[in-house]
Amino acid sequence: MTEPKLIARNVDVYYGEKKAIDNVSIDIDNGIVTAFIGPSGCGKSTFLRSLNRMNDTIAGAKVTGEILLDGEDIYAASMDPVALRARVGMVFQKPNPFPKSIYENIAYGPRIHGLAQGKAQMDEIVERALTKAGLWDEVKDRLSDAGTALSGGQQQRLCIARAIAVSPEVILMDEPCSALDPIATARIEELIDELKNSYAIVIVTHSMQQAARVSQRTAFFHLGNLVEYGETSQVFTTPREDRTKDYITGRYG
C-alpha cells in the first residue's frame, strides 16, 4: 500500500463565525476517483476548496487542522498557495473558459509557470492537453476561435484540458457536470475515468448515480461532518451509517 496523496487531519473550516466543516479527517489516494456526496450546504464544496487553498480568496474563511500533500502541510507558512494550485488543479461547476482563444485558454497556465520554451513546445503542450481531454479532434482546426464559442460540454472539457496543461498531481472537480446535458455529462464521465490513471481525482457531485459510476471511493458529508467514507460499492450497497442510508435511498437531501 502506497502513501495516500492527500491526508486531511481534524480539519475545521470557518466562514467568519460560522463553522462550515467540523473535524474532517480523510485520506485520498492516487490513481483513483474519490467522490464527495451529500445534500446542498453540507460542506463538501467547502472542503474541496480547502484542498487547494481556494478558500483563501474568500474573505473571512479560515482553515484549521492539517492537510498534507505528499506529506507536506499545505497550510504551512512555507507553502506558496500559487505553487500549490499548480499542483492541485481545479475544475468548476460552471464551465469558465477565459474570454480568449481556445489555444490561449490552454497556454495560459503553462505560460505563467514557464513550462514551455518556445512556440513549438507550447503547441505540443496544448495538443497533448486537448488530446487528453478528448477535445483535440473537435477543435484542432479552430484553435484561434474564442473558447466561449464552444458548447457547454466542450467548454467544460476545455477547462479540464486547461487544468491538465499545467501537469497537476491532483484534480479537484466541483460538480463539473451540473450545468451540462446528459450526453455531455457522459462524455466528461468517460474522460474522468481515463484521467484517473494519471492523477488523483476528487469530484464533488449532487448525483449519486454519477458518484456510483465514476468513483472508487465515496465520502458522504452531512452538516459539515464526514459521516461515512469507504469503497463506493460498500457505501452504496451496505452503508454503515443510518444517515448515509437515508440519503442514498432518497429519504432526504
Binding site: 500559487v82 488543479g89 460552471k94 477565459f98 495560459y108 509557470h113 487544468a163 499545467v166
Partner: peptide
C-alpha cells in the same frame, strides 16, 4: 464573473497575473 478569476487562480496564477491577463481583458 468570479468564476473567471477563480479559474485563473486555480491554475496557480498570482493575483496580479489574474488581473492583468484575465480580468482587465475581460
Amino acid at each position: 464573473p468570479r468564476a473567471m478569476s477563480d479559474g485563473s487562480l486555480a491554475l496557480g496564477a498570482t493575483r496580479s497575473e489574474t488581473i492583468k491577463k484575465v480580468l482587465l481583458p475581460a
